[in-house]
Amino acid sequence: MSTLAEHRTPDRATAAARLPKPFWNPYLAGFLLGLVLLGTYLVTGRGLGATAGFAGVATWLASLMAPAEMQTNVVHAKYWNDGAPLLNWTLFLLIGAIVGAALSGWQGNRFRWSVERGPRVSDGQRLALAFVGGFVAAWGAKIAKGCTSGQALTGGSLLNVGSLVFMLAVFAGAYGFAYFLRKEWL
């Protein structure tokens, strides 16, 4: 039973190497995020986004089920892209973001198959809440024409009034519900 012996006396160097490395100082990470946003503006003339990438996938899914809607539905028509809804700029941004985050997480030993939750809810409850939250957040982002990326960061840096209103509303909505959801997180 050599494996058991290894468990009893773990190699200290290996154990230390597997510990997650600390996150960056938030101001440094914010500065880097700001440079990415600035660079995106300087190249494309538009900033970052996220929700539009999901919209491209949604329109593609809808086209498989109801192709006629691509002309009649104003939302799908916007993302139909002449029959190539998956060649969506923001969707490629999201794919890049997944790769970038995976690289960062791998380098920092932070990859974990896990469910993020407080100790007082079960994994199942947390996953159900994650689905509901994603659904509501996406609906809100569609109404507001953007999310934390497209409105708050991108519009905020250009002092877009709608973006600043959106940002205040997001924090108001989240702080308003925080008390009722403390069991999920604390």
């Binding site: 957040a137 934390t148 909505g173 519900f177």
Partner: peptide, 27 residues
């Protein structure tokens, strides 16, 4: 209105659209 809904979805779901990519990329 969209911002309030988004904020509610943020605290219920735990993420926003961009950060969900960072989460799923790290398992």
């Amino acid at each position: 209105g969209g911002g309030l809904l988004f904020g509610a979805g943020f605290i219920v779901g735990g993420y926003c659209p961009g950060t969900a990519m960072a989460a799923l990329a790290t398992g």
